[in-house]
């Protein structure tokens, strides 16, 4: 009993103050890439960045762009480019509600639009997530698991992780979706009651990541289910995921999430 109390006192309360206070990442953190097409064009015939990128995330035509959905944040492009066009900033905000928004051409962070009003009324203060590991290497799964620990503490936002898809509101998928998981994933999606969300977690779930082009995988969730938010990373830092969720649910203190364009109650997209 005494050891219990002493240990408890020693451990203290460890939950981060974020989002009430800004979170500071260390200098070594490989965060959101920024593209700085300087006035000078690339040196003639230079394709160092293309050769150095493990997942072909960089395109040079028609203009220099880095696809965050493919990026694994390895920083090889930073080291290989002679003109210093690419940098990896300290910013952990990389989530986006649109796939196009992940293709970076400058140093602006991708945008997460908040959910429609009708969904915010339901999910704004309480949400349950069902995670499915569809071929994930373990990174995304472990980082998501870490979000329920005492440092990040998802529960303080009313967000919880559930066992049964019937209890869930959001299907969080990680991994490049091997064929052997496809049917299980689809059945899991169908078991979520409406309204429901699908979020792709990590480079593999967005584009296949390092496994893009494999004969046994589907190159990400998009080819199978309608996706509501993309969270890049390999694996994404828990704060990146948390930031994505909070912006989606309009829970950030500065209320910075833009609204969705179009009709107030957009009917749910489906591949059916």
């Amino acid at each position: 009993m005494l050891t219990w109390l002493i240990n408890r006192a020693a451990q203290g309360q460890r939950t981060l103050a974020y989002p009430a206070e800004p979170a500071n990442m260390p200098d070594t953190y490989l965060g959101r890439p920024t593209v700085h097409p300087t006035g000078t064009a690339c040196p003639p015939d230079c394709q160092e960045c293309l050769a150095s990128c493990p997942t072909d995330a960089i395109t040079l035509q028609p203009d220099i762009s880095l696809d965050l959905g493919r990026c694994v944040f390895c920083s090889e492009c930073v080291q290989s480019c002679p003109e210093q066009i690419f940098k990896l900033s300290n910013d952990f905000r990389t989530a986006s509600t649109s796939r196009e928004g992940l293709k970076l051409r400058n140093d602006e962070a991708p945008v997460v639009e908040k959910l429609q009003e009708s969904m915010l009324r339901i999910f704004g203060r309480s949400m349950r997530i069902r995670h499915v590991s569809a071929g994930d290497c373990g990174g995304c799964k472990d980082e998501f698991n870490a979000m329920s620990n005492i440092v990040f503490d998802l529960s303080r936002f009313g967000i919880g992780v559930v066992a049964s898809p019937r209890h869930a509101d959001m299907l969080l998928v990680s991994g490049p979706i091997p064929e052997n998981m496809r049917v299980a994933l689809e059945k899991c999606y169908l078991a979520l009651p409406q309204p429901r969300l699908v979020v792709a977690l990590g480079a593999c779930a967005i584009s296949g990541g390092p496994f893009a082009g494999s004969a046994f995988c589907h190159n990400g969730v998009e080819s199978i289910l309608p996706v509501d938010m993309y969270i890049p990373g390999c694996p994404p830092h828990p704060l990146t995921v948390l930031d994505g969720f909070l912006r989606l649910l309009d829970r950030l203190p500065d209320g910075a999430s833009p609204s969705r364009e179009g009709t107030a109650d957009r009917p749910e997209r489906s591949t059916r």
Binding site: S133, A134, G135, D136, G175, P176, P178, N180, M181, A184, P210, F211, G213, S214, A215, F216, C217
Partner: peptide
Amino acid sequence: FEHRGAEEM
């Protein structure tokens, strides 16, 4: 279930 064809890739 997680067979991604890593060896071939």
